[in-house]
Design a binder for these strands. Structure first.
Lengths: 96, 96
DNA sequence: TTATTATGGTTTATAAAATAAACTACTTTA
DNA sequence: TAAAGTAGTTTATTTTATAAACCATAATAA
């Protein structure tokens, strides 16, 4: 009946990050921070976890002398997200 | 943009419990345990939290000499669930 | 009739997660 | 050149989730 929810995605912040990335395909650290209202520290930790899971890629470079961190969703990440959406729908539409 | 997800419902087990209760209006502890595959300890803790939040009511009685714990959703619980569903939909349908 | 196992839980301890606070490194501005 | 700002990371603390241990009673078996 009710399947497991991918614990990596069942976290408000990580779900928001992935949701944003699925939409735009690429985003800066600062953009994600603004959009999610997360603290930098929390965001830093969570994108690392998503990277370790292979759900996103992180590229570090410099822009106008400042460090810049770019995040992109991977195909693995997209699949995991789609799967998560499917599974959680069963929790959201209880059968009468 | 992305609203907060009610932390009381953004928990796999508590969400499953509430989802089940919204469907049936009343359920036994053992039924919830079976349906969710939770351990009794975890289930016991989580229904207490839902009760403290006013999302469910817990009634304890005896049935065939054995203790029996019945859980029912409250109107507060139904509203919280509906609100949660609305909010999380925004995470699940990323805007292109 | 007294161990033994089963039922239906609760309480306590441990592991894992999320979050915040502190820190690093460098840049810009006053 | 000191202070403040940018863009993060690391570490510490708090909160959650989970598991393990426990409790009380009932049914069953020896």
């Amino acid at each position: 009946m009710l399947k497991e929810l991918d614990p990596l995605l069942h976290s408000q912040l990580r779900l928001a990050i992935v949701s944003l990335l699925v939409g735009v395909k690429e985003a800066e650290f600062t953009y994600l921070k603004e959009q999610t209202n997360a603290t930098a520290g929390n965001l830093s930790v969570q994108i690392q976890k998503l990277k370790e899971a292979g759900y996103i890629e992180i590229e570090k470079k410099f822009k106008d002398n400042y460090p810049q961190t770019i995040c992109k969703i991977t195909t693995t990440g997209i699949k995991a997200f789609e799967q998560y959406v499917e599974v959680i729908q069963n929790y959201l539409k209880p059968k009468k």
